[in-house]
Computed example of a mutant assay.
Amino acid sequence: MLDLRVHFLEADGSLAPWRDQILSVVRETAERIRSRVPGLEAAPVDVIIERRPGEVIPELGLTGSCYRRALISLTLDPENDNFETSLAGGDLLRTLTHELHHSFRYATCGYGVRLGEALVTEGLADAFDDEVNGGDGRLWGHAIADGEWERVLERAERELWAETYDHAGWFYGDDRALPRWAGHTIGYHLVKTYLAANPDARPSQMTATPASVVIGEAWAPLRARLLAAA
């Protein structure tokens, strides 16, 4: 069983009505990862759970972050109209699964400081969620319209290994020239392309795989496939 140490921060609002349900989700997440990904070992991880109105993904009423190997934050907004549905429908479980892959990767090669590294790290975390919980990505993994792919991929290719990049612009939509969640979508499809070409590969076993390996093998075929379909 993964050692997930939960801490409720409630100075900004009580989470008492949902505490038992949240703790059940944390336990289920740890069990799913343990049972479906045998041999995956991890040191203890602190999981902060806090209530911050308006500081979430609006479509879900919650969000997550991983700041370093041993620290994950889950932010909830019970006042959001979508919160109850998301909590009951498994979105908190899937968010925690995603963030745990970041934790595992922080323990090996790290999140990364360049766009290409962030694309692979985020794509692997979403593919790990698929591996553990099923499905075909989440809404941010399918956020680029067919007619936008060429422009977005060309810009990403120019910036892949630059010394600095606009993380908020690529991953949250702060750059109006980019579709919201463009980085998440590219990363997810990039990793899926790599996995399709390597049937024995699993995101759970790729926590230390360098971004250059995934990009080196998957970027060209992904670009060719998407542009051919546009």
Rank of each mutant, 00 (worst) to 15 (best):
D146L: 14
Y111V: 01
E28Y: 06
G39H: 11
W161A: 09
G112S: 11
A145E: 15
V191M: 06
H189Q: 13
G141S: 11
T207V: 10
D12R: 13
A127S: 14
G169A: 12
G89I: 03
S204C: 03
P44V: 06
L60A: 12
D91V: 00
T63V: 08
D130C: 12
H101I: 03
D81F: 05
S86C: 02
V120T: 10
K192H: 08
S86R: 04
V120Y: 04
G134N: 09
N80K: 08
R138V: 13
Q205D: 12
G135H: 11
S103P: 11
D174Q: 10
A229D: 13
I49S: 01
M206H: 04
E50V: 03
E148F: 10
S103E: 12
W181C: 03
A224R: 15
D129T: 14
Q21N: 01
L74S: 03
E157S: 15
R225N: 13
T207F: 06
E150M: 00
L71D: 02
V191Q: 01
A88L: 14
S86G: 13
A182C: 10
C66P: 00
A43N: 09
L2N: 04
L74N: 02
W170L: 08
F104N: 05
N80D: 15
W149G: 10
I22L: 14
